[in-house]
Simulated scan of single mutants.
Amino acid sequence: MNGSVAGGGYAEEIISLTRRPSGLGFNIVGGTDQQYVANDSSIYVSWIKKDGAAYLDGRLQEGDKILAINGKDLKDLRHRDAVELFRNAGYHVSLKIQRRLQPQNGPVSHQGDGDSGGLPLAAILVPGLALAATAVWILLRYRQRM
C-alpha cells in the first residue's frame, strides 16, 4: 500500500478514482447525525459495488475511513452533506483514506518468495496415505491368518 503508517496501527493512502456512468461504486455511512462507530462521526465505506469504479481499482475496502475528498476534509459533516460532496466531486476524484492495519500473528509469509512459511500439503498427505495403506495391508494380513 502506498501511504504512510500513522500512529496506533493505521495507514493513510490517497486513492484516485475515475467516476463511471454508475458513479464511484461504493456507499458510505457515518456523519455527525448518524454515527457508524460510537463516539466517531467520521465517514466510512460500507459497501463496494461489484464492477464499480472502486471495485475495479481494487484499493478501497469496506470499513475504510474517508478523511477527505478532493482535498476537502470530511470531519464534522452530516451524512447528507458528505453524500452531496461525493455526488458533486466531479469526474476525477481523489480520496484520502485511513485503514486500520491488521495485526500479524506468527511468522509472516510472502507469496511467491519460494518459502511457503509452513509444510506443503504433499508433505502431509504422502506420509498419511502411506500410513493408511500400511494399516490396510496389516489388517488384510491379520484377517488371512484367522
Score class of each variant (00 low, 15 high):
L56R: 04
K65T: 00
G117Y: 14
D81A: 10
Q35K: 05
A68F: 02
E62L: 03
V83H: 07
D73N: 03
P107R: 02
N105Y: 11
D113I: 09
A38R: 11
T32H: 04
G30E: 07
S41R: 02
D40Q: 04
R80I: 03
Q111H: 09
V45M: 09
L67K: 15
G58L: 09
R100L: 11
N70P: 00
L74K: 01
L56F: 00
L119Y: 11
K65G: 02
D76L: 12
A68H: 00
H110F: 15
Y36C: 02
H92D: 08
V29C: 03
T32Y: 00
I48D: 05
V37Y: 08
H92V: 14
V93E: 12
G52C: 13
G106M: 05
K96N: 08
Q61C: 14
A130P: 02
A82W: 07
V29P: 00
S109Y: 13
S94E: 14
D73G: 01
F86A: 01
K49S: 12
D115N: 11
R80F: 13
Y91H: 14
Q98E: 15
L56M: 01
G128Q: 07
T32F: 07
A89Y: 01
L125Y: 06
Y36L: 14
G128M: 09
Y44R: 10
V93W: 05
G106A: 06
W47S: 13
G112H: 07
L85R: 00
K49Y: 10
A68Q: 00
P120V: 06
G90V: 10
N88W: 04
K65C: 13
Q35F: 04
D33S: 14
Q35I: 11
K49I: 08
I69F: 12
I48H: 04
R87Y: 05
S116Q: 13
L125V: 04
V29Y: 14
R87G: 12
D64I: 06
Y36M: 08
H110N: 08
I69K: 04
Y55V: 06
I43M: 00
D64G: 00
I43H: 02
S41M: 09
G114P: 12
K72W: 07
L131H: 12
D57C: 06
A130Q: 13
G30Q: 01
L85I: 02
S42M: 08
Y44I: 13
H92Q: 09
F86W: 04
D51M: 09
Q61T: 06
G128F: 05
G117N: 09
H79L: 02
